Computed example of a mutant assay.
Amino acid sequence: MVSLSVPLALLLDVDGPIASPVTRDVQPRIIRDLLRLATGGIPVIFNTGRSDTFIKEQVMGPMIAAGMSPETRIHAICEKGAVWFSYTADGATALHVDSSLAVPKAFADDIRTLVAQDYASHMFFDETKHAMVSVEQRLDVSTADYKAGQELFDAQALELMFRHGLTALRVDPTIISTDIESVRLGKDLGASRAVELLAAAHIVPQAWRTVGDSRTDYAMADWLHHHDHEVKHVDVRPADGVPDKPYQILTAADLGLDPDVIHDDAGAAFLAKWLDMMAG
């Protein structure tokens, strides 16, 4: 079968660039522009620590409701590479789960109990994960209060992890959650799965744009660059510090926007820019 060359492929973190870390939902303009890009032949692939359930409810459902064309296919790599699926206007394909990357059930049960007994006022246990263990900030809790509780929780989770003898796991805190996961998981694994998914469809991007809001998201562009793909990384929260990389890094300031424009507002601006480039 002849391969299809496309000018650009998008590899997108979800929390931050696409979904608001405050409300957890996705702006209608972002849904609209993602659909326009995908319908125009630009591969759209989500690479997230979120579960398949979150993607189906917050992204897939709104995209289908907005009028997704029957030919459009979106890929979603969840739980940092452990879970993946695709979807069309007809809904989701079969879910793939790499069970070799899953956290042991006994440990997950202990974390669930810890949250229920000591931290339920600050966070909740994410029951939708297949491989990772995640706890997330409650929407009615302030960032400052959550951070204070998160630090205590992370320390106890690490102690539990060692008590179970799980040296191949790590505790990974974010601005709204803590993930406990296999050390083999990461946005780099997600990037490799993204390339495999497009290769299986005989799609060859001439270049990639990776988009994220944390330092760990740079692993997407790191992996692509290391494997000789042309890539630029978009950082929608550069105040955390922009590292020195061998590829170009873009921020809202590169679009002439106020540096205070971050997260999904910055993500929306970049989607609009790429649409303008396609039109031009």
Rank of each mutant, 00 (worst) to 15 (best):
S134T: 15
D260W: 10
A201Y: 03
D110P: 05
P70N: 14
F153E: 05
G67P: 02
E136G: 10
L198D: 05
S3P: 04
T128G: 05
V22S: 12
S192P: 03
A106K: 07
H226E: 15
A157R: 06
V183Y: 04
A102Y: 05
L8H: 02
V135K: 08
A200H: 14
H226I: 06
P70D: 01
L198M: 11
R112G: 03
S214K: 08
I45L: 13
A92G: 06
R184P: 01
P205G: 00
Q248V: 11
V171E: 00
M277Q: 14
A65S: 12
L185C: 14
I77Q: 10
D140M: 10
F153W: 03
W274Y: 11
V231T: 10
G16F: 14
I45S: 04
V242F: 07
G256R: 13
L197C: 11
P62Q: 09
I203R: 00
Q58S: 12
I175T: 14
S20V: 01
K80P: 02
I262N: 14
T251Q: 04
K129H: 08
A120I: 13
P7F: 11
S99I: 05
V204P: 01
L189K: 15
D13N: 12
I77H: 11
R138D: 06
P238H: 06
D145N: 07
L271C: 05
H226S: 14
L250T: 08
A266Q: 09
R24Y: 09
G40D: 00
K105A: 09
A66T: 04
D126W: 04
G81W: 04
S99R: 00
A131P: 08
V115I: 15
V83F: 09
L152N: 05
V97W: 10
D240S: 11
P243V: 08
R184S: 12
R50T: 05
K245Q: 11
D276C: 06
V171G: 03
F85C: 11
D154R: 04
Y119A: 10
F85K: 07
I249D: 11
R50D: 08
H229G: 03
D52G: 04
A207H: 12
A266L: 09
L255C: 04
A268F: 03
D179C: 06
D235S: 07
T113W: 10
V103T: 12
H96A: 03
C78T: 07
A279V: 07
S5L: 09
D109R: 14
H233S: 02
H122I: 03
Q150G: 09
G91L: 03
V115L: 06
T216P: 00
V236L: 00
E79N: 06
D15A: 06
V6N: 05
Q248A: 14
A207Q: 15
Q156T: 04
D118P: 03
A116H: 13
S20M: 07
E71H: 15
P205W: 08
T88I: 00
G40Y: 10
S69L: 12
G241P: 10
D172G: 05
I111K: 12
P205D: 01
V135T: 13
